[in-house]
């Protein structure tokens, strides 16, 4: 794992735009880490599960553009 990847893992997370989400579950279905992304998106607005490796599968597969990466310091 290169230094940039480590930096992103330490400082980034996947966040959800609740206005776009219809809780379809494609994000959870495609998560290789088995995280229930949909539940995190609904309850917390962000994937705060420590297993998340920021692979981007959920971000890429969401048909409504609900999920995106952001910096931890910008997420409150």
């Amino acid at each position: 794992m290169d230094a940039e990847r480590v930096r992103l893992l330490a400082t980034g997370l996947v966040v959800a735009d609740p206005g776009r989400c219809v809780q379809c579950g494609i994000c959870s279905h495609n998560c290789p880490c088995g995280i229930d992304v949909r539940a995190f998106a609904r309850v917390a607005g962000a994937v705060t599960d420590a297993r998340c490796v920021l692979c981007g599968s959920c971000v890429a597969r969401c048909p409504r553009g609900t999920l995106s990466f952001t910096l931890l310091r910008q997420w409150t």
Partner: peptide, 9 residues
């Protein structure tokens, strides 16, 4: 707009 989603990478 103080929109935290505006600054993505």
């Amino acid at each position: 707009v103080s929109d935290r989603t505006a600054d993505h990478y």
